[in-house]
């Protein structure tokens, strides 16, 4: 683990490609009004999920937030389980009880995602506590947006993780906006979140969150340090959400002015999938034709998943009370 071999590069590319195609396909279908669950698409932010998850072992665990599809898929969750969950079917990864923001794939190490900001930061810290108690080498990872660094639970958790040197990786996806609120209305000018982490004696690093290799390498360094017993690491990944906060649209097409089309275009130029694909080709690791074949494989998985989801059974009303306790 840790070295950027051609195999790693291929896996990273195939991962971001899968995340992108899945989200784009689901976003295209979303307007049919058949997925009746508020959905926060992660298009544009794929490299964070793919880069970090590639640095993990299968029994490491991952937690996520409301914009969770990328993390669920990158850790190994199935498109079928995701699609069926969005369509509210019994075959969804949460049996249609959770919806877009409450995903799970425990057998793949994706424990849960949750919609309340910061919740799973504490929960991942607790899983790390369990690993430490068991003297296991497993690592717990929590993904969250930069707005969560405005929540108290982030600081409580970071303080505790540092106090006990817990094996937890805090991955902040800084996409510059919380719903429609820019950083300028939420954090003092000149804020460096890594400085906040360091104030808690937490090792911190900031990376280009659209560069799969940079994220993978930073996550690898982090995980190695954590497994060596050095305590938690905070990773700030700079990235950008292409679509609206919740829903499949684009802000500029919906008349929203909190950010500009020019800004979006700049980030689309810096697309994580494009960057990873170009790198593969320029280094002679994969041809355009090979990439086209991978794309078709992914598209095929998604088509089957969506078709199967739409035909899957609805949860029965008689099972409304299942699994309360």
């Amino acid at each position: 683990m840790g070295t950027v071999t051609p195999d790693v590069e291929i896996r990273l590319f195939k991962s971001v490609l899968r995340l992108r195609r899945a989200e784009e396909s689901l976003a295209a279908l979303y307007s049919e009004q058949e997925m009746r669950t508020p959905t926060h698409f992660g298009v544009g932010q794929e490299a964070v999920a793919s880069g970090v998850c590639e640095a993990l072992l299968p029994d490491d665990v991952v937690y996520s937030h409301h914009r969770c599809h990328n993390h669920y898929l990158a850790k190994g969750g199935s498109v079928a389980g995701l699609a069926a969950e969005l369509y509210g079917r019994e075959t969804g990864c949460a049996n249609g009880r959770g919806g877009s923001v409450h995903l799970t794939a425990v057998d793949k190490g994706f424990v849960v995602s949750s919609a309340i900001l910061g919740q799973t930061i504490a929960v991942a810290t607790g899983s790390a506590l369990a690993f430490q108690m068991d003297r296991s080498s497993r690592v717990a990872v929590t993904f969250f947006g930069e707005a969560t660094c405005e929540e108290g639970v982030f600081y409580e958790s970071m303080n505790y993780a540092a106090l006990r040197k817990l094996p937890v990786l805090f991955v902040c996806e800084n996409n510059l906006y919380s719903t429609e609120s820019p950083l300028s209305t939420r954090q003092p000018t000149g804020t460096e979140l890594c400085e906040r982490a360091r104030a808690f004696k937490v090792t911190a690093e900031k990376v280009d969150g659209n560069d799969t290799i940079a994220v993978f390498e930073a996550a690898t360094r982090a995980v190695e340090s954590i497994r060596a017993g050095n305590g938690p690491v905070f990773l700030e990944c700079m990235t950008y959400r292409w679509r609206e906060h919740v829903g499949p649209g684009f802000d500029h097409e919906l008349g929203r002015t909190y950010r500009t089309k020019a800004e979006l275009d700049k980030w689309i130029e810096h697309c994580p999938v494009k960057l990873a694909g170009e790198r593969l080709q320029s280094r002679g690791i994969a041809s355009e034709a090979q990439i086209a074949r991978w794309t078709e494989e992914v598209e095929s998985e998604i088509r089957v998943a969506v078709l199967t989801a739409k035909q899957a059974p609805w949860p029965e009303a008689q099972n409304l009370f299942d699994n309360i306790y």
Binding site: Y63, V123, G126, L129, A130, A140, V153, Y160
Partner: peptide, 27 residues
């Protein structure tokens, strides 16, 4: 190892207990 004080962090500590419980502990 099994009985330990907590900093004043009621919310996160509850979440930490949840995360430990998800990994098989009974906090």
């Amino acid at each position: 190892e099994r009985v330990f004080d907590s900093p004043a962090m009621e919310n996160a500590m509850t979440g930490i207990c949840i995360g430990a419980a998800a990994m098989g502990k009974r906090p």
